[in-house]
Design a protein around this nucleic acid. Structure first.
Lengths: 206, 206
DNA sequence: CCCTGTGAATATTTTCACAGCT
DNA sequence: AGCTGTGAAAATATTCACAGGG
């Protein structure tokens, strides 16, 4: 239950609903949500039906209730501690990305291998060496790692993360990581995103 | 033919094959590719079968041939011009991300709205104002836009991009974009990636 | 009458399993 | 013997379509 494609859509619905809520709207129909995303209303209803009965027949869904329910299912009513591995250009962009904090994700530990960076502070978080990983994440209650290191370093660092007890990794390095079964990796691969697009262009005519 | 999930996997196969090629390997089997990705060999064969008959029964695939074929299908045997919209932290990380150039993607135009940034140069590319968009991309033969602006600015900029003739957008802004039918948007939504992970953690026990 | 919730139908994707080539 | 390519089966995911509530 709650398949991957469904979760992928629920997070988007949640985002849309929060925007409507900020704009002062109270109620929404499955059709309206569907239209924003160019999907079918049946799919939206099916997806939302996993939250338990929440809609009002003939009227639609109460936005505030839906958000509350979605936040619960998506785990957004807690604070999540993050560790960032790699304080380069991409790492910095992630660290200062405003969208994380807003949804309860907080960088508590930053790791880099460059001695010139170690000891520097980013908004009060001191950049540490990988040796300090386990101690830091235990102390700061961190359970999700963001990996923004060069491809060549990624597998080694991943093993350090696994040793330190991390079970969830968001990987930006352009390599497939080898991890134990109980560790979950999500891939954000920027070059591959562009390749999907170029494939699109090339095969558009067909 | 060539469904979205298939393309999503083909780009990954291509990456793996290029690594093996650099390491000097000549031949590969579907099973070996599958193992790296924790998938089934049948799926790899099915995916690769869309390239036309390329495997050798009893032996496997010649890595160089596969790469050549994949590059062709994925549109990687050409140079692609990119325009970056938004020269903030994320924009800079994207601009200097080494993985793009390597696969033939080149930033040729950079746009920002901040007068303090306009006129500055990044590796020889001058940051311009949005008014210069159409002229710049026409001159520089750009067909893919990377959108790295704040949520509030994204829809407006998108319309400028569409007016300028862009048909492919890789959007990093955390909003759903409204575009004409013939314009394709791919979403990279960093906060939503983390929400998928937190949902994972919360529902892991179930 | 409008919109939800959901069985049933359809479409898509993945896996099985094996014939056939080397 | 080992591995590909692919029909056929199975599993997933999406859409249809309508009963039923307000």
């Amino acid at each position: 239950m709650l398949s991957k494609p469904t979760v992928e859509r629920l997070v988007v619905y949640n985002r849309i609903l929060k925007k409507l809520d900020r704009e002062g709207q109270k109620w929404i129909t499955s059709k309206k949500i569907a239209d924003v995303l160019s999907r079918t209303s049946a799919q939206v209803r099916r997806d939302l039906s996993f939250l338990g009965k929440k809609g009002k027949t003939g009227v639609g869904y109460k936005i505030k209730d839906l958000i509350k329910e979605l936040d619960k299912v998506l785990g957004l009513n807690t604070e999540w501690g993050l560790v960032l591995i790699g304080a380069g250009n991409l790492g910095r962009a992630l660290f200062y990305y405003p969208g994380f904090r807003r949804e309860g994700f907080e960088f508590r530990v930053v790791i880099d291998s460059d001695p010139k960076k170690i000891g520097k502070k980013w908004s009060g978080v001191t950049i540490k060496s990988i040796e300090k990983l386990k101690k830091s994440i235990d102390k700061k209650d961190v359970c999700i790692a963001l990996l923004a290191v060069p491809a060549g370093a990624a597998q080694k660092v991943t093993e350090d993360l696994v040793d330190a007890g991390i079970k969830e990794i968001l990987n930006f390095a352009p390599v497939t990581l080898n991890v134990p079964e109980d560790v979950n990796v999500r891939y954000v691969d920027l070059a591959l995103e562009l390749e999907n697009i170029s494939c699109n262009i090339v095969n558009k005519s067909k």
